[in-house]
Computed example of a mutant assay.
Amino acid sequence: MIPEKKRSIAIMKELSIENTKQMLMINGANTKNPLLLFLHGGPGTPQIGYVRHYQKELEEHFTVVHWDQRGSGLSYSKRISHHSMTISHFVNDAIQVTQWLLDHFSKTKLYLAGHSWGSLLALHVLRQRPDLFYAYYGISQVVNPHLEESAAYQYIREISDRKRASIRSSLIRFIGAPPWKKGIQQLIYRFCVEMGRGGLTHHHHQSLAVLFQMLTGHEYGIRNMHKFLNGLRFSKKHLTKELYQFNAFASVPSIKVPCFFISGKHDLIVPSEISKQYYQALEAPEKFWFQFENSAHNPHIEEPSLFASTLSNHALYHL
């Protein structure tokens, strides 16, 4: 018997959802592999511009789908109504993207991954349509932004107090504890987080590498950076308030599919202690906790081989 030939895929696909054009990037070594849909972070920070550099191994096991969400990146448009920039609309978008993927690839279910803001959306999606998914991978799982900022602030304050003469110590004392009413306080706080090597990446050179990939890659490049920046501003303006109202303990106490939570040890944007409290309280058929020792907020980018092996080891049944 002649073995079936593998069919790789590498396409960009524009979907029309509720009178908006939304962009997908689909890549994999074999379309017979299961689908893995990523919900990116932010609000407004899509991954299409750089992520292929970090998912070569992942593409051997899954057909990986990235989606620039409504109003973000390649899906940004001045014509998008700010009234549609709500969690409810984004959840409906994600379900429509999922259903299109299942129909297009003749699949019955797929795997769902949510990173940061995307992990918030994922919990709502799973709450509404668990029947569409084999399992969920929550990366830097958002649970309660107020608790997460308070935990990070307390950690930074304690570390900074040991070095009273440091710039970070002065700044963190200046802004005081959250919640903050002024934008400058939030900016100073994020600066302190990045200084503490607990921000987007644990090692600063990795953040610079991501920026380089965005500027030089063919998916975005310099020509599309204005869409990325405009989408970032637009998304944060209209979604931040609703983000800060989220409390997973109250709104999503249970999920009907297996759940895997992956947290970076050094993450101060979404501290692992809060994510782990949610993991421990959550009701699910199966649940697992993974901490990546050399990562901050982007473990799937900072430790891509470990990320790929973690997911593929679990999904072995469907590979």
Rank of each mutant, 00 (worst) to 15 (best):
273 E>M: 14
223 R>K: 14
277 Q>L: 14
177 A>F: 06
250 A>G: 06
201 T>R: 02
291 Q>R: 11
193 V>Q: 01
209 A>C: 04
204 H>R: 05
190 R>D: 01
225 M>D: 07
177 A>M: 05
248 A>N: 05
210 V>L: 11
243 L>K: 11
170 S>F: 13
179 P>Y: 04
233 R>H: 11
285 P>H: 07
295 S>I: 03
299 P>C: 08
284 A>I: 02
173 R>T: 08
294 N>M: 14
172 I>R: 00
254 S>L: 05
258 P>C: 06
243 L>V: 10
228 F>C: 03
223 R>C: 11
228 F>E: 07
191 F>R: 00
235 S>F: 03
178 P>Q: 06
209 A>R: 09
272 S>T: 09
281 A>K: 12
173 R>N: 14
255 I>H: 05
251 S>F: 09
248 A>M: 02
263 S>G: 07
295 S>W: 06
256 K>I: 02
269 I>Q: 10
224 N>K: 15
220 Y>M: 13
258 P>T: 04
237 K>C: 04
213 Q>F: 14
234 F>N: 00
225 M>N: 08
171 L>H: 00
224 N>S: 15
231 G>W: 06
167 I>M: 03
168 R>G: 00
253 P>C: 05
176 G>L: 04
237 K>P: 01
212 F>D: 15
275 S>A: 15
185 Q>W: 05
173 R>H: 07
193 V>Y: 00
230 N>D: 14
196 G>Y: 00
293 E>D: 13
185 Q>Y: 09
218 H>T: 12
288 F>G: 04
242 E>V: 08
288 F>W: 10
257 V>I: 15
278 Y>W: 13
177 A>E: 15
292 F>Y: 12
242 E>F: 08
243 L>A: 07
248 A>I: 02
259 C>W: 02
246 F>D: 08
214 M>R: 15
256 K>G: 14
194 E>K: 03
171 L>A: 01
222 I>T: 09
282 L>E: 03
246 F>S: 12
235 S>L: 04
210 V>T: 08
235 S>H: 04
223 R>N: 13
180 W>Y: 05
249 F>C: 08
295 S>A: 15
255 I>W: 02
203 H>D: 11
224 N>L: 11
301 I>V: 15
232 L>K: 11
261 F>T: 05
177 A>P: 09
190 R>H: 07
166 S>M: 06
287 K>T: 01
228 F>A: 08
169 S>H: 11
254 S>P: 03
233 R>I: 10
205 H>P: 01
177 A>R: 09
241 K>H: 10
267 D>R: 07
250 A>Q: 15
288 F>V: 11
299 P>V: 07
166 S>Q: 07
229 L>T: 09
233 R>D: 10
176 G>F: 00
191 F>C: 00
260 F>I: 12
260 F>L: 11
203 H>S: 11
265 K>R: 15
216 T>L: 10
179 P>N: 05
205 H>R: 13
299 P>A: 09
268 L>R: 05
185 Q>N: 10
232 L>F: 15
294 N>G: 10
216 T>E: 09
267 D>T: 01
285 P>S: 07
255 I>M: 12
194 E>N: 06
257 V>Y: 09
240 T>G: 04
213 Q>A: 13
198 G>M: 01
222 I>N: 06
274 I>Y: 06
206 Q>L: 15
269 I>E: 10
248 A>V: 04
201 T>I: 01
226 H>V: 12
235 S>T: 06
